[in-house]
């Protein structure tokens, strides 16, 4: 029987320089689900996110994404896998000499997709994230919130099945946090699997009033489902 999970971690451990960040972590993200990943700084939220898109390899255990064991994939196969996963980093990671539009189009250009068609749809996409007026600007000219929304636009341009957002509201004010959360919820309603790492419990509480989200708490070297205290 096929694994029904979009992402599955089985008994995964991550160690850096002899220090174990977490161990025996098992979790499954069902297609179309919304999960928050929370925990104190240094607990390994970013590392766990990196495991999910193949930027990091586990010290132990097995990770499958779309039923594919990432440990069996070479670098180019991981690259192709990432086209089905939209990633939003806290630091956004743009190519600074390209315009916002060119940055948003990058996933299409690197995958040799139909750039012209994507360019035609750009206005709708940029309007969705509220950056219509800024498409020709360079990333360093954008505010923190604008950068996060541009990163989100880039993450969804290939219509991926999974959205991984690592502290997407880490550098923005509350109003902008709610805007970004709203965009993630919209994507989830379109059937996307969303995993959002955040330490902002207020944001999680706000989200739970609008979407059926599960909260995973990473701490003490393992991960567990957070319960009623939220």
């Amino acid at each position: 029987m096929a694994d029904p999970s979009a992402i599955a971690l089985n008994s995964v451990a991550v160690s850096y320089s002899g220090r174990t960040l977490f161990r025996d972590v098992s979790l499954q993200l069902a297609p179309g689900s919304f999960h928050f990943l929370t925990g104190p700084s240094g607990a390994g939220k970013t590392s766990l996110m990196k495991l999910c898109y193949g930027e990091l390899s586990p010290s132990e255990g097995r990770i499958t994404v779309f039923d594919q064991d990432t440990s069996q994939m070479d670098r180019n196969a991981i690259a192709r896998l990432r086209r089905r996963i939209g990633v939003v980093h806290q630091d956004c990671r743009f190519i600074d000499h390209l315009s916002v539009a060119e940055n948003v189009l990058l996933p299409v250009t690197v995958s040799q997709g139909n750039v012209e068609a994507a360019r035609a749809d750009m206005a709708d996409l940029m309007s969705w994230v509220g950056l219509n007026a800024l498409t020709n600007h360079r990333p360093p000219e954008l505010s923190g919130g604008e950068r996060q929304r541009a990163a989100l636009a880039r993450a969804v341009i290939l219509s991926p099945d999974i959205i991984l957002a690592d502290e997407p509201t880490g550098n923005v004010d509350w109003e902008m946090s709610l805007k970004i959360l709203g965009l993630l919820i919209e994507l989830n309603r379109l059937g996307k699997t969303v995993l959002c790492a955040t330490h902002d419990m207020s944001l999680i509480r706000q989200a739970k009033t609008r979407v059926s989200a599960r909260v995973l708490r990473l701490g003490n070297g393992t991960v567990e489902l957070a319960g009623a205290e939220l």
Binding site: E55, R75, N76, A79, R80, L81, R82, R83, V87, H89, R93, F94, I95, L106, P107, V110, S111, R154, L158
Partner: peptide
């Protein structure tokens, strides 16, 4: 290096 990181993040293969 930063450019390459971004390219990898968005799914660029080595040949690209």
């Amino acid at each position: 290096g930063q450019v390459i990181d971004v390219l990898r993040l968005v799914g660029a293969e080595d040949r690209y």
